[in-house]
Simulated assay, not measured.
Amino acid sequence: MLCALIMAGGKGTRFWPLSTEEKPKQFLSLIGEETMLQMTVNRIKPIITIERIFICTGEKYVHFIKEQLPELPERNIIIEPEGRNTTPCIALSAFIIKRYYKDATMLVLPSDHLIEDENEFRNIVFSANKFIKNNDEAIITLGMKPTRVETGYGYIKYSNDKKMINNYDFIKVEAFVEKPDKEKAEVYVKEGNYLWNGGMFLWSVENIINNIKIYSPNTYEALHLLNSIDQNKLQEIINNNYRYTEAISIDYSVLEKSKDIYVIPSDFGWDDVGSWEALDRYGEKDEAGNILVGNTRAVKGENNLIISTNHSVVVEGLSDIYVIENDGKILIGSKSNIANIKELKNTI
């Protein structure tokens, strides 16, 4: 039974001032009319029914999920008492999913990624699910072929050991590599056996729980009672025990140690939309190259990024600038310097 976990507890600080801790980017409409979370859910609904889609988030964001996904069963909203990285999030969610779907295969997705070719994405997930059914101790990750030298992503180094299912290669992972500097990224791209790590995984729920028991025992011990307790005590146990989990990413705790990991080289137009530059790459542009979000206009100007959440904004006769308005705060600057916008945070 294929189920999905969407991790939606991040604070989205790289998209400040539009994304804030009160309303992070996964709940915003950055590309198109749907929010990033809605895009993620709608992308997988053709192959996973809403009853088998689970979302892990913090208490302060539950109302956004209910507003944006009113059809999602309330039991499928998994509430973390605090953010403690991806290992506790995945462990908690695996135990919850196992309560309802004992033999589930678990697709793990971030809540704020862009995928342009959604049919290809679903085909890869379908093939990966088939692989897991025949290899129940395997871990599958999706890796994207680098299209540029990128220092903002981790990389996956793969070996020559591969299998094929439905015309997709399943290649044994040799190593997970941290975000590199520019020189190392250039080497990775040139060598050709490195893929971007998009943080998307498939595994049997039983297998990931067993791996966490081996490689992150404190996390397992803190949460294993979730297997057997009554439903009405579930959140109480989570709230009391979550603090004892190991605050570490799944890459460090499990993926760098487990031996049966495969990567599928994937080509479906992926980006994690983790920066303003990414929004400029994928945002819908008018004939003058302007990206306009909200009640905004650009008159006699080109290549501008203009976003407003509350007020009407008109820019006349200017080019290559950004204007970002959120909750009455307005930032204006050169688009060439937008990567450094967070440096202004303490000035307003």
Rank of each mutant, 00 (worst) to 15 (best):
R52T: 01
L92K: 00
S312Q: 11
H63V: 14
A278P: 10
E186D: 15
I212Y: 00
N129M: 14
I44C: 06
S319F: 05
S93Q: 05
K11W: 10
Y101G: 08
K23W: 05
R297I: 15
S334K: 12
L18G: 03
N119L: 14
Q26M: 14
W203F: 14
T105D: 15
M36R: 08
E236Q: 10
G152C: 14
D320F: 13
A339W: 13
I139W: 04
S19E: 08
Y101H: 08
T87M: 11
M39G: 09
D271E: 12
E82K: 14
D327R: 14
E71C: 04
Y100A: 03
Y215H: 03
N123I: 06
K342S: 15
V299H: 12
E22H: 12
I79V: 15
Y100F: 09
N227V: 11
S253Y: 00
S19C: 13
K184E: 07
F64Y: 12
E191G: 07
A104M: 02
S336C: 08
D169V: 04
T105Q: 06
F64L: 07
L225E: 15
I341Q: 05
I264A: 02
T105R: 05
S249G: 13
A94G: 00
A185S: 08
N346W: 13
D280I: 10
N241Q: 12
A278R: 11
K45C: 08
S93D: 02
G317F: 12
T86W: 01
P17F: 01
D112T: 03
E82M: 10
I248F: 00
S204T: 11
E325L: 15
T57A: 07
T219I: 01
S204M: 15
E236L: 14
D161K: 09
A128I: 06
L2Q: 00
I115E: 15
K163W: 14
Y168W: 08
F121T: 03
E256T: 09
N310L: 14
C56H: 02
Y220H: 13
I261S: 06
E343Y: 14
M36W: 07
G143L: 02
I261Q: 03
T49R: 12
Y188I: 03
W270T: 08
K66H: 12
L30T: 05
Y100S: 05
I77V: 07
E206T: 13
H311P: 09
S19T: 08
D251K: 03
I115T: 10
I50C: 06
P73C: 07
S228H: 14
N160L: 04
F27Y: 10
G289T: 04
H113W: 11
H63G: 09
F27M: 06
L142T: 00
S308A: 04
A175M: 03
D267G: 10
V41N: 01
G198K: 09
N295S: 15
K184V: 13
Y220Q: 04
W203T: 15
I261K: 01
L2W: 01
E343N: 12
Y252C: 13
N76H: 04
